[in-house]
Design a protein around this nucleic acid. Structure first.
Lengths: 256, 256
DNA sequence: TTGCTCCTCACGTCACGTGAGGTGGC
DNA sequence: TTGCTCCTCACGTCACGTGAGGTGGC
């Protein structure tokens, strides 16, 4: 009594969708008129609205097919499950929304505000932009890998930055970037670090400090590729520091 | 420095997804090792996390490609838009969730509680189950088509059911279901309706009553296919009622 | 006659997933 | 040697969308 386009508009779907539901066996093929046009009645409209209601809720069409011929109790259980599934999907979408809301620019992608504050402070302390960049990419990795611990680490780093000798260490490291690995000044820098060392915080000082278990092999490999493998002079420097009994988070076997 | 599976696990995606991003040109192909294996560095991990963050937010990969090379301000505008889009999608999902929550069984699919209450009352008044079914399917159509007006209509119908003569009319109609269209008793029923008529409510009595504009051609055609086209005696009855100056919502030209 | 709807294939899309068939590393 | 990972095609999936080429109704 109505045509396919009338039916489709009525239910709020496309004509193609209706034909697709026929092909899938979800909606029974109606009788045709003299020219081969499909003619639908109210039952078809009711069926289609049911299909759309379930499909809109994210139910796969194969599942819709089952449900349309399900018994009362079986259906009730399924509807309950669909509702919980929708709620769960809404929750993850809300997480993604808050994550997206933090993305003010491409540089801060995946970085929470407390890391951005920390990076701003490094800039304010006079560190070079490429140094800040190394930190930034490192923190993107850390935040992705250990989101629950990263805030604690940042707090610890912020406290460390209150220490002048710690800041001096950073500035020294910044200076060595372009030096050749065999630059004799690196030995002086390593000695300077050894002086500063007592001021550097370790896991023994602070329970929030990172411990070896915080970094799996993947993490260590990635952080290394950003630092010792990228800046030749730093590889040398790490070696010199190890000779002086100072080791950081990096793989002791980085030089393999 | 890390393998494809390490990279994938780190970012929380599948190995296939990483290769897909290579194929789409989203993630640059890294160098290979001696056996042709891809070797990734931290930059790749950072890039992949960025891609995943955007893709999780529902951004099409083609769009992700643009955004990764966008300028600060252009990116900020896009992120804002993605956030609004996510919020909108969350809102429609919440609508679908509330709609799904109402689906206690297959019969009540797409029907709000106030319609179910109305149908229960019809049963309580002694109407046959098949009669209730005709009402139910009609209301499914009405609720789908005019959701904003259906509650008002139900309220009006509930008030009408307080009228004994109105209820009598329903019971008479129920009785005629199986009669032949030429059954002489139909004339008596039509006469009885004519007696009841002053008690029937019309648009003149109540501004909430349905007017012809509430039903487009599709709606009329569908409601007809559930009633006058389905039950032969009703087609005859409508004709008899029209002779007596009583017309309902149905198409006056139903008999074409 | 023009424009709109309808019909049936067949192939496209989106973001991957699934084997198939083979090689490399411990 | 076994099991695991890696590689590259090629094709599959899900829910339709997009024409292609043709007919019917006003």
């Amino acid at each position: 009594v109505i045509t396919i386009s009338e039916l489709a508009r009525f239910a709020g779907v496309t004509v193609k969708a209706v034909r697709h539901y026929h092909a899938r066996g979800l909606l029974p093929e109606p009788d045709r008129d003299a020219s081969g046009y499909r003619r639908y009645d109210a039952q078809a409209a009711v069926d289609l609205i049911r299909i759309k209601t379930l499909a809109d809720a994210g139910v796969p069409l194969a599942r819709v097919h089952e449900l349309l011929s399900a018994e009362q109790d079986e259906f009730a259980v399924a509807v309950d499950e669909i509702g919980r599934d929708l709620s769960a999907r809404i929750r993850v979408m809300e997480q993604h929304r808050t994550r997206v809301a933090r993305l003010t620019d491409a540089a801060s992608l995946a970085l929470p505000a407390f890391v951005l504050d920390y990076l701003d402070r490094l800039r304010a302390l006079g560190l070079s932009e490429r140094m800040v960049n190394v930190e930034r990419e490192g923190w993107i990795l850390l935040c992705a890998h250990r989101p629950e611990r990263s805030q604690g680490w940042i707090r610890m780093k912020q406290e460390s930055l209150d220490d002048r000798s710690y800041v001096e260490g950073y500035r020294l490291l910044d200076l060595t970037w372009d030096w050749a690995p065999d630059d004799p000044r690196l030995v002086e820098v390593a000695d300077a670090f050894a002086q500063i060392a007592p001021g550097l915080r370790t896991a023994e000082d602070d329970p929030a400090a990172p411990v070896p278990e915080d970094f799996d092999d993947t993490m260590v490999a990635l952080l290394d590729s950003q630092t010792v493998e990228k800046v030749p002079s730093w590889a040398r420097l790490i070696g010199l520091l190890q000779e002086r009994g100072l080791i950081g988070w990096t793989d002791p076997h980085y030089d393999d």
